[in-house]
């Protein structure tokens, strides 16, 4: 595709802007900023990838992955601001997911150890892990806040913090991973996954594209469950002190005022 044909694609940006104006949806500003950001970010990534692929140096690969982890952490940490040390808990989770998935992929020679494979797969894993951690943190903080009475009851009867928060923890892990699991049940029937579609359009053999997509789906499943569970078990202890007392959770409105 040439840049000229790509610029024609901007028509698809104009349509929502015109609609937004006529219907007073107020989405113009966000649409424009989203468009500009996606152009700049993706083009930058494209050139960086080209550079990394050409140099084939492990340092650049690691650097790119670290960058992804930092960006994902930046994005997700706001959702868990009421949890002490959430930044490091997120970093630990993303690093673990990355090492686990790449370890298995490379260890069993499922994918070749080249930047061309490692980077896009890492991007998908960390990106998905980020979305999952946001889903989890959203749900967990609201579950904890809504069920403080129950937590306190269990503590007051001599339960441990883990027992006192167990139900909220499990509910939040389930709720955040269900969309990933559910979407896999209808995949291919309702929509073709973006990566597979891209590969097919780029001329790949559809069956091979499907095989690859399946691999990604299974990886995403692992990333989803591992992210929620690990983040959950890392997070809940910081809601309590060493006297097994529930710390006052700073409510969202209080946080925003600072």
């Amino acid at each position: 595709m040439s840049y000229l044909t790509l610029s024609l694609a901007l028509i698809f940006v104009l349509i929502p802007i015109i609609l937004s104006k006529t219907l007073h949806l107020g989405l113009e500003k966000d649409t424009v900023s989203a468009t500009v950001r996606s152009i700049i970010q993706l083009l930058a990534v494209g050139y960086i990838l080209q550079f990394v692929f050409d140099s084939e140096h492990i340092i650049y690969i690691i650097l790119m992955i670290l960058l992804m982890i930092i960006a994902a952490t930046q994005n997700a940490r706001k959702k868990g601001a009421s949890i002490k040390g959430i930044t490091w808990k997120l970093v630990a989770t993303y690093v673990f997911v990355e090492i686990l998935t790449q370890g298995i992929l490379l260890g069993f020679n499922i994918t070749p150890a080249t930047a061309q494979y490692i980077i896009p797969i890492s991007g998908m894993m960390i990106g998905n892990s980020m979305v999952l951690s946001i889903l989890f943190l959203n749900r967990f903080t609201s579950e904890v806040e809504a069920n403080q009475d129950e937590t306190e009851l269990i503590l007051s009867l001599g339960g441990t913090p883990k027992q006192a928060i167990h139900r909220q923890l499990i509910t939040s892990i389930q709720a955040s991973t269900i969309p990933t699991i559910e979407s896999q049940k209808t995949i291919g029937l309702v929509q073709l996954p973006g990566m597979m579609s891209g590969q097919i359009m780029a001329g790949a053999d559809p069956v091979q594209a499907v095989q690859f997509q399946l691999l990604i789906l299974f990886l995403l499943l692992t990333a989803a469950v591992v992210t929620s569970a690990m983040l959950g078990f890392l997070s809940y202890p910081s809601l309590f002190n060493e006297r097994m007392q529930m710390l006052k959770i700073r409510r969202k409105d209080e946080l925003n005022s600072h």
């Binding site: 009475d149 129950e150 306190e152 009851l153 269990i154 503590l155 007051s156 009867l157 001599g158 339960g159 441990t160 139900r167 006297r243 097994m244 007392q245």
Partner: peptide
């Protein structure tokens, strides 16, 4: 130990919270 204390000094909460 906090759990031991809470079993020895039992409380019936004002809200009568149930699980």
């Amino acid at each position: 130990d906090p759990t031991e204390l809470r079993r020895k000094v039992g409380i019936a909460l004002q809200s009568a919270t149930m699980i």
